[in-house]
Simulated scan of single mutants.
Amino acid sequence: MSATIHRLDQRPAPSLDPMVALIAADMNLVNAVILDRMQSDIPLIPTLAGHLIAGGGKRMRPMLTLASAKLLGYTGTRHHRLAAAVEFIHTATLLHDDVVDGSDLRRGKRTANLIWGNPASVLVGDFLFSRSFELMVEDGSLKVLKILSSASAIIAEGEVNQLTAARRIDTPEERYLDIIVAKTAALFAAACKIAAVVAERSEAEEAALDAYGRNLGVAFQLVDDAIDYVSDADTMGKDAGDDFRDGKATLPVILAYARGNAEDRTFWKAAIEGHRASDADFAHALDLVRATRAIDDTLARARHYGQRAIDALAIFPNGKAKDAMVEAVDFAIARAF
């Protein structure tokens, strides 16, 4: 079989549409599980959970579980509940993150914590975590349970690592990468890998899907961190400059700080510590990240990880599923342009 060489810069206007079309029937079944399992006799739970679950998200992580199953030719049904579990884990972390960050917008809508308060958001997040573990246990595979429970713990570790790194301009690039691998890439990797487990495929195929998801997750988060400095609320679904005002030393800041002169570095230190957070300060930060090519290089790193994700699919046969998964990588990176 001749290898197909995919390059990120050869396909115009990448889209998730091929992946959406590929898994549409399966996603309908996953959505039915999500709707059923978010119900409770306590009305606030489905109301608050539904606000976020039905809030316009792309369902990227469960889509990856379903697409990976398609790639492997799996014809069973176990992946439907597990994809729902993945989405519940993700939604629970979003509810908790918005409380920690004090966010006002999520996907262009007011956050649950802003509407119902922090205690309700935290507790409904706990409910969704519990639902995800019920679904894992019902699947009956200890291996699947280990993969998803480990990912859940790693996500929490990543969030705590990020919390302790907040307001620290001296955060090294290596620690930043550790944070995004944990808080974002771990669930992408697990979402893909569990498809190989339920399809009873080889460890090599498990590892390939893990690598695909992990590298895609890193690329996805790098782009997210870049567009905080180059996009707007309508595009991002959150306020521009949120990371800046929250004192997060993301890669654009780390690079701009390292490349700046003494005056620039004094500004960044004050800004990340929370002393320079006005609109004018954010505008100055934008000038600095552009002048130091920090955004360009952040996106270059995203493309690097994106290519690694694509390369990880090399062991699988060419076809619609593989093409859709390649284009999903392109789409994740093209969001910045």
Results as ranks from 00 to 15, higher is better:
Ala67Cys: 14
Ala21Glu: 15
Pro14Cys: 08
Pro18Asp: 10
Leu105Ile: 08
Ser40Gly: 06
Arg107Asp: 02
Thr47Gln: 15
Leu95Asp: 01
Thr47Asn: 14
Gly56Arg: 00
Leu114Val: 08
Ala49Trp: 11
Leu29Glu: 14
Val99Glu: 10
Ile53Trp: 01
Ile89Gln: 04
Lys70Glu: 12
Ile115Met: 07
His51Tyr: 08
Thr111Met: 10
Asp41Val: 12
Asn28Asp: 11
Val99Ile: 15
Trp116Leu: 12
Ile23Tyr: 05
Asn118Ser: 09
Pro62Val: 02
Asp9Glu: 02
Met27His: 05
Asn31Tyr: 05
Ile45Tyr: 14
Arg81His: 15
His80Lys: 14
Phe88Thr: 04
Met63Gln: 13
Ser68Trp: 10
Gly50Gln: 13
Ala67Lys: 13
Val100Asp: 10
Asp26Lys: 09
Leu44Phe: 15
Leu82Arg: 13
Lys58Tyr: 04
Gly117Ser: 09
Met63Thr: 11
Ala24Met: 05
Arg110Ile: 05
Asn113Leu: 08
Val20Asn: 14
Lys109Asn: 13
Tyr74Gln: 08
Leu123His: 05
Tyr74Leu: 08
Gly57Val: 03
Arg59Met: 04
Val99Gly: 09
Ala120Thr: 09
Ser68Asn: 06
Phe88Ser: 04
Gly102Cys: 07
His90Thr: 02
Thr91Val: 05
Gly57His: 04
Arg107Thr: 02
Gly108Cys: 05
Leu16Val: 08
Asp26His: 08
Val122Phe: 02
Ser15Ala: 12
Ser121Asn: 00
Val100Gly: 05
Arg11Met: 00
Arg78Glu: 11
Ala120Gly: 03
His6Tyr: 14
Leu94Val: 13
Leu72Met: 13
Pro14Glu: 06
Glu87Asp: 04
Leu29Gln: 15
Lys70His: 12
Leu22Arg: 09
Leu64Phe: 15
Lys58Gln: 06
Ile23Asn: 07
Leu95Ser: 03
Ala92Ser: 08
Asp41Thr: 14
Gly102Glu: 07
Gly73Pro: 10
Met63Leu: 13
Gly125Cys: 01
Ala25Gln: 04
Pro12Phe: 00
Arg81Met: 12
Leu94Pro: 07
Val20Ala: 12
Trp116Met: 11
Gly55Ile: 00
Asn28His: 06
Ile34Ser: 03
Tyr74His: 14
Leu44Cys: 13
Pro18Glu: 07
Ile42Ala: 12
Ala54Ser: 03
Asn28Arg: 09
Ile45Asp: 09
Leu29Thr: 11
Asp9Pro: 00
Val86Asn: 04
Gly102Asp: 07
Ile34Gln: 01
Ser103Val: 06
His96Ile: 13
Gly117Phe: 09
Met19Cys: 12
Leu8Gln: 00
Val122Ser: 01
Lys70Ile: 01
Asp104Pro: 03
Ala120Tyr: 07
His6Ile: 00
Asp9Met: 00
Ile34Tyr: 01
Ser68Leu: 08
Lys109Met: 11
Asp9Leu: 00
Ala92Thr: 02
Leu35Asp: 14
Arg7Asp: 01
Val99Tyr: 06
Gly57Ala: 04
Asn118Glu: 11
Ala32Gly: 13
Leu35Ile: 06
Thr111Gln: 11
Leu123Phe: 07
Ile53Pro: 01
His80Glu: 09
Ala92Phe: 09
Leu105Cys: 05
Ala32His: 14
Met60Tyr: 09
Gly125Ala: 02
Gly102Asn: 07
Ala21Lys: 15
Ala49Asn: 12
